[in-house]
């Protein structure tokens, strides 16, 4: 029911939500450096782990088992995790602050905008930011010769999909949070995902049972999706990844929209 009602909101015609994006653009005009800095984190990781440590590794089995240079292996995974991290930061810490301290949303609700518009608008903003980072990172990958397949054209949309899935679920989780300390729980989930989703080493490294578990986790979908696209290892499993992340995002959005109604319209 709620999911059905939300679907039309996600269509780009949702002009009311976009006004919230406009608000965030105003804010970040004052702090553009913060925006810019978000681009450097995955770049630093690529240079340090990809090239620095990569020199000690050489090649590593790629998504289809063929050995590929380590840089080629880790770069797409860094993009996928950066998309997750960016979306999580915006949808948890920043969202919690706006919801509980800044009272930004309280004022907005006195205008024709509804809680659903706010949820979609905030998510859209996180995605626009994430999309810019992804684009920047893909350019870096091109410069370093780390894009070897024309399928890589789908990398930026995939990064957006990862951002959508994690951003929506992050907002849903945040709508249940009471204090800043609850955010330890989020880090407790995000850090293992970052380290163990076949980000830095192939999934085959794990014993078979663990492999099954990792294959069920959300960041793995994103890592495998983007890595397969950049090296051109296309298979039907990629559609499963896309479906997984889409469903995750819509569930998150449905939950957060309902929670915001409850939290803001009292």
């Amino acid at each position: 029911m709620t999911a059905l009602r939300l679907t039309p909101l996600l269509i780009p015609g949702s002009r009311r939500s976009m006004r919230l994006v406009e608000r965030n653009v105003y804010v970040y005009r004052h702090t553009w450096l913060v925006i810019l800095s978000g681009f450097f984190e995955p770049l630093f990781y690529l240079l340090s782990i990809g090239f620095g440590l990569g020199a000690l590794i050489g090649t590593i089995p790629g998504p289809d088992g063929e050995p590929i240079p380590y840089q080629l292996f880790v770069a797409p995974a860094l993009l996928a995790s950066a998309s997750m991290n960016g979306a999580i930061n915006e949808s948890t810490f920043n969202f919690f602050f706006k919801l509980n301290y800044n009272k930004t949303f309280t004022a907005i609700l006195s205008t024709p905008l509804s809680p659903g518009d706010i949820a979609v608008g905030e998510l859209a903003w996180a995605l626009i930011r994430g999309g810019l980072y992804a684009l920047g990172f893909v350019v870096v990958m091109l410069v370093f010769g780390l894009v070897v397949s024309p399928w890589a054209i789908l990398v930026v949309p995939s990064a957006l999909l990862i951002g959508f899935a994690f951003g929506a679920v992050g907002m849903a989780a945040t709508s249940f949070m009471k204090t800043w300390q609850d955010f330890d729980l989020i880090q407790l989930v995000i850090l293992p995902l970052f380290l163990f989703s076949a980000t830095f080493f192939p999934i085959e490294t794990y014993p078979p049972v663990l492999q099954v578990i990792v294959r069920l986790t959300p960041l793995y979908q994103g890592v495998d999706l983007i890595r397969s696209l950049t090296v051109g290892a296309i298979s039907p499993i990629l559609l499963v990844h896309v479906a997984y992340l889409s469903v995750m995002g819509f569930i998150g959005l449905a939950v957060v929209s309902r929670r915001l109604d409850k939290l803001l319209l009292t």
Partner: peptide
């Protein structure tokens, strides 16, 4: 409507 809430809800970041 024009609404003036009890506590100011101005956007401090702007």
């Amino acid at each position: 409507l024009g609404v003036v809430p009890q506590q100011d809800t101005l956007d401090n970041e702007l």
